[in-house]
Amino acid sequence: MNLTVDVQEQENKAIVLLAGEIDAYTAPKLKETLLSLTEKQGNKVEVNLEQVNYMDSTGLGVFVSGLKSTKENNSELKLVQLQDRVYRLFEITGLIDVIDVDKTVQGGY
């Protein structure tokens, strides 16, 4: 399986549409894209995971790096429209309390 990463950039805001699986093979590419966005001062990054049907713990690592990068760059990271199985990972790992995760509604800023 593969992961497609589609970025729509606007001023101070970026929407990342993901489709496929996030695992050890696809994570590096996602990490590169995600960090390039969160490293922009004040950028608001929204990641849509509606089409992500599988994510393993490597994927969590990518979003944790993203979160740490937002703190250093005064940017924001939000995950939206997660499938149940993916949401469960954030729930079990307690990361829903530290990362902005919106399960159902496509949120806007």
Binding site: L60, V64, L67, T93, G94, L95, D97, V98
Partner: peptide
């Protein structure tokens, strides 16, 4: 059991 993974925030 509730709790965040080790290594993400120092105040967990």
């Amino acid at each position: 059991a509730k709790g965040v993974v080790l290594g993400v925030t120092d105040t967990a």
